[in-house]
Design a protein around this nucleic acid. Structure first.
Ligand code: SF4
Ligand code: SF4
Lengths: 144, 144
DNA sequence: CTTATTTAAGATAATTTTGTCCGAATAGCA
DNA sequence: TGCTATTCGGACAAAATTATCTTAAATAAG
């Protein structure tokens, strides 16, 4: 459904949010180990998210990544996905056709558009806060 | 959403079905040109579909691909997708986690499972006949 | 100011997906 | 039989994605 990069992005953001709620800044190393992802690859993804104003990075000793507490609820999964995978999900059609004539859609159009818009809505309505706090019970799931 | 191979597979099957309804057997060349796909790559995909009993291939002069008229309605998109992409869509979770504890699902589980099962249902309920005949008006869409 | 620590950035490598090429096998036809 | 059109099947190549390595830049602390 999403690219590997995007999955890491979501998991990492979730972990950072969880720690930021307790005022902990976390290092790249810690994040990668916590979500079981390749360190350097994760670095690029976090960098991208930082450039997209989704999280903040701090260099130097005691540096790392964090998210402003008050923003955790306004950051939606859709923002993360868009920053990493772009808007491919929203645009292309299921069959990968280049463009589409809305006046004479193929027989699948209605159905696909419905499902895709459900997904979109879900991503837009689900905040990082929701995901992070929703799993405080079984935190280990981020490792899988 | 689907792999490129899968997209070609759906488009090709649709075209073959459309022609088979009129008792025309179509060649690889014709198919590839009709759906705008790389010839050799398309060959592999069609071959795979043939091995999965989704379509029939005939070698030699006047050979090509076809689908038994009476089967066109019982072949569902799900069959094609499964033959090419396997069952990845149905198994993995949105976050790409290896396994999942249904007893203590992450906060996204309900939502994702719902959307995914909608997609699954749609693929299982949509037959090649439906797709092929549904677009007889604007056939050129397969080129895009 | 120096050093240790940590992210930034770019080059490089491995893997997967997508795409190409070519000889072999098959079938129709003269 | 021999010729030709076509799929089959495997080896090969290119492109995209994922992952690693190396060096630079920033910054906190002594
Ligand atoms: S009309 Fe059909 S081909 Fe076009 S965007 Fe919709 S589903 Fe895709
Ligand atoms: S519980 Fe969460 S992590 Fe597990 S399969 Fe469901 S969505 Fe994925």
């Amino acid at each position: 459904m999403f690219s590997k990069a995007c999955e890491y992005g979501i998991k990492a953001s979730t972990y950072i949010a969880l720690q930021s709620l307790e005022m902990n800044r976390v290092s790249l190393k810690e994040i990668a180990s916590e979500i079981n992802s390749p360190i350097a690859f994760t670095a690029k993804i976090l960098h991208k998210l930082a450039k997209n104003d989704i999280l903040e990075s701090v260099k130097g000793p005691y540096g790392g990544f964090q998210i402003k507490k008050e923003r955790i609820d306004s950051i939606k999964l859709a923002h993360i996905v868009a920053a990493i995978d772009g808007d491919d999900i929203y645009n292309g059609c299921a069959l990968g056709l280049d463009e589409c004539n809305a006046l004479q859609p193929c027989p699948l159009h209605e159905k696909f558009v419905g499902i895709r818009s459900d997904l979109k809505k879900m991503l837009e309505n689900t905040s990082l806060y929701e995901v992070a706090t929703g799993l405080e019970v079984g935190l280990t799931f981020l490792k899988r």
